[in-house]
């Protein structure tokens, strides 16, 4: 092989890896876009549930919705994987340690983080709880740095920070004041949510170095849905809500569509995390806050506020900083 031929081969390989990374960046953005869609659709589906009293509204309805969301997503993914001939892979993966770690990731990201998020909002108020939970990409990046030894360049840190600030600006609502003794407990639960989502991504990425992301996300959704259904819903009285939803075909259909959006979004998120690393994957997924509000403005005619415009701008600048990579992946290849 002549030197020029070999050089051409190296250039072709570098282009292949760069294209693969680019695809990962778009997949990450797509996961944010579809997650924003999922949030808005979930809001619509929730409004179709009949009024069931204040106590049910605080915990039972949101957790039942999370359970239906994850279970439907798990079923859609079973169909998808079945069609692609990967059903056997689900069982094969569950028999291995990396596959079992994906189950642990599911519990951290599903019941624990979602539960913490809901409890945080109800005990500490949205202003504080949403601000704390918006930090989850930073938690994920830090954990991936420590446990997966993933390198994060200063540009990505800066972009992620801008995106997080943007997300906080978008979701900011004036605080109602510290007026209860449960306030700090609420902050603790909100922190648990950020930690849970961050840890989920890191554990899942560890697992996915040895198992297929498309299979991993199927395991994640089914584990989360089942655990919520069997363990959490009986505690919070959520089965009343689930049975109510099942008697209303329109509402059930709406939740099935919500679950489809969740399946697509999570599939993209897991794939992006494993292709471009947790820090970038999470930062790009974090653009969902912006997408969610844009969908609300366009389709639900929500007012376009100053906070939304400024926050979205910060998210876009931040995501661009995270995504655009001046040849750093080429360098990585040479060092390795």
């Amino acid at each position: 092989m002549s030197i020029s031929g070999n050089q051409k081969a190296i250039m072709m390989k570098e282009k292949l890896n760069a294209d693969f990374t680019k695809k990962g960046v778009f997949t990450g953005l797509f996961s944010g876009f579809t997650w924003g869609l999922n949030s808005v659709l979930l809001g619509l589906a929730l409004s179709m549930i009949p009024v069931m009293g204040e106590n049910v509204a605080i915990f039972a309805i949101p957790l039942a919705a999370a359970c239906i969301n994850d279970s439907f997503a798990g079923l859609w993914l079973l169909l998808y994987n079945g069609g692609a001939g990967r059903l056997k892979e689900v069982l094969r993966s569950l028999k291995t340690f990396p596959g079992q770690m994906v189950c642990v990731a599911a519990l951290l990201g599903g019941p624990i983080a979602n539960g913490g998020y809901l409890l945080g909002i109800s005990l500490a108020g949205s202003a504080y709880a949403l601000t704390i939970t918006a930090l989850y990409p930073i938690v994920g990046a830090l954990l991936s740095r420590i446990f997966l030894k993933q390198q994060i360049v200063p540009r990505v840190w800066a972009g992620m920070l801008l995106s997080v600030v943007g997300a906080i600006v978008i979701s900011y609502v004036p605080p109602e004041g510290v007026n209860s003794e449960t306030f700090y407990l609420g902050l603790l639960f909100a922190s648990l949510a950020a930690l849970g989502w961050g840890a989920e991504a890191v554990l899942a990425v560890f697992g996915m170095s040895m198992i297929d992301p498309k299979v991993a996300i199927n395991i994640r959704q089914l584990t989360s849905g089942l655990f919520l259904a069997i363990v959490i819903l009986p505690i919070v009285g959520g089965w009343v809500v689930v049975s109510q939803v099942f008697t209303l075909p329109g509402t059930l259909g709406a939740f099935a569509i919500v679950g489809l959006a969740a399946a697509i979004s999570y599939l993209a998120w897991y794939k992006a995390n494993t292709t471009i690393g947790v820090a970038k994957g999470m930062a790009l997924n974090g653009t969902y806050v912006m997408w969610g509000v844009i969908f609300s403005v366009v389709f639900l005619k929500s007012p376009l506020t100053q906070n939304l415009v400024i926050g979205s701008l910060l998210v876009v600048i931040g995501a661009t900083l995270v995504a655009i990579n001046p040849k750093e992946f080429f360098k990585k290849g040479e060092v390795a």
């Binding site: 031929g5 072709m12 390989k13 890896n17 170095s209």
Partner: peptide
Amino acid sequence: DHLLDMKANHILEDNDVEL
């Protein structure tokens, strides 16, 4: 796709290439 992912996760190397 599996190979590219494992390379991206730094558990495989792809230093040996030719046409």
